[in-house]
Structure formats: structure tokens, C-alpha cells
Amino acid sequence: MDASYLDLLMAQQEEVAEAEGGGGGIWVVADLVDGGVAPVTLEAIGAARNLADSLGAYVYGVLLGDGVADLALALYQAGADGVRVADHPALASFAAETYLAVLADLFAAEQPEAVLFGATDMGQQLAARLAQRMGGGLIEHTVALSLDEATRALQASFPVYGGEYFEIAACPQARPQFLTVEPGAFAAPFIDPYRQGSPTMLDVTPLEPAVRRVGEADGFAPPPVPLNRARLIVAAGRQAGDFALVERLAAALGGQVAGDRGARDAGWIESGQVVDLRSATVAPDVYLAVGIRGDTFHNAAIEQARFILAIHPDPQAPIFEVADLGLEADPQQVLPLLLQALE
């Protein structure tokens, strides 16, 4: 690559400009995973970008961590107009006091219209405390956003009873408006490789944490959840093929293993794990029927499940009539691919 070509390439880079002197804007506080920016943060920037364009506002990203300045580029490329970075060893892992102090100072100076967090462990904690500290409203687990142009308020939908339906709410009076954004709810934004910018570094004054991590909780196990209260069930049937794959899928999804009578007869599960009108009826958020044909006794027992995914080689299997999504396939072939796709 010769120098002239590099110059040409550099000339295409778009230096992003931000508003002079701050004021307003939609701000997204970044979550990090495995040394990178979490997908939920990029999704939040995408959502913020759409709103900001309607509002005529700028989008800002905030990065907190240790050695994270390089990640600013990912925020610019996802659509941020400006990025603030708080880079300090005290921020290497989540420390509520210091994180809150940095953000409160920043937002007190910048007066955002709205601040978005991922609805993650960290985002949920920061958003609630910051909202109270700054007198803002907060809507958690937002899955859809719209704009009330009269008040410039963000109208957010959030699931009720785990998604049976959605409430729409807004905090039209107070600023900033705080929101946490449910991971996966918003589309990943277009990544523009030509966008770039120069992030502003923030001062960090570490505070002594009041809560200290002692170590791993060895031997702790949460109380067992009975099958009829399980939120996610992976159930095997006669056509499941390889039961080990079913168990792996349950582990990957954090669900409980169950099955129909066929799975019990095959010796894969105990009687207490049988899903059947004659044994246990269940009402999970998600029910995966792997190789279950699905007679009335079984299908009536999963009637209350909110989402049913069925995998069975026979297109005529009755389980497909009750399933929200059916895969006509041999579980033994499709499960490894599903496991891969989930990773």
C-alpha cells in the first residue's frame, strides 16, 4: 500500500462534530463485555440515533473502565456524535460510588435530555440511583421508543407480566429522562467504518467502595424450582435422538430438563420430570419440545406456555399445531447447529 493510497483512504474518514458547549443530547452509557462494547450499548446508540435525528439533537456515548479509550471508536461508528471516556484503574470493575460520581458530575454539566443504559446488571443499578440523584424519571426494560414531539418526551414501552402485554410511559416534565434498554429489543445499528472522532477524557476521583467482593460463593445453590414454576423448559421426546444434546441445550439456555412419557420410558428423565396432563402441567415463558410428537395429554399440559418451539422430524406431528415455531427436522442434526447459533 503506497502513501498516496493511504492519504486517499484517510480523506474519506468523516470527523464527527458535536455541539458546542454541551446542552441536551441523548446519552448512552456503555456496558462492556469481554473487553469490548456490549451489543446492547450499540443497540441503544442506534435507538438514540433515530430519536436524535427527529429531535435535532446529538448522541453521546460514555465509556467507563480501565484502558477503554480505544473502544470510543466503536461508539462513533455506531452513530455517536461525541464520546466521553472515564479511564481509571478504579473503574476496572463496576464500583457503584465512583461510577455514579463520574456520571453525576458529567450530566450535571451537560444537562442531557435523555440518558440510556443497557438493562444490564450495571445499567439497572446506575440508572435508578442516578435518576433519583438528578431528579429524573426512569423507565426500565424499554423494548420500543417513540417521540412525543410536543414535550420532546421519549415514550417507552416495557413488558408487563413478563411480556403478556406492554405499558407505554413517559416522563415529560423532568430532565434528564432515564431509560434502560432491554438487550436484543432494538436492532443493531449500521456500523459506519468511516465515522471517527476524538473522545473527551473525564476526571476520575476514586471513592472508597462501601460494598466489597469477598469471593465466590462456594457451594451456594439457589433453591430448586419445581417444574410447574420453571421459566424455561427443554423437554425431550421419543424422537429426541441424543439426550445429551438436549441437556446441553437446557444448560446453554439456563432451563430445566423435562420430557414426555417417551423420554421417561427411554430412561432419560425421572417420573417427576414428565410433562403430561397426567403428571405435571407447566407454564414457562419458553417451552422447547425436542422430538416430542405431542398428543393431547402432552399438549394440554403446555397450554399455558408463552412460547413453544418444536423440533420433530415428522411434519404431521401434532406438536406443530400448538407450536409458535416449528422445525421439521431430526433433532440430532439440528441441535448442534442450534447450539452453535446460540453461542
Binding site: A144, E167, I168
Partner: peptide
């Protein structure tokens, strides 16, 4: 601060 705006 919060206003309910409806259901979906």
C-alpha cells in the same frame, strides 16, 4: 414524574 400513556 412518570406518566402512563397507554398499553400495547
Amino acid at each position: 414524574l412518570l406518566e402512563r400513556r397507554g398499553q400495547e
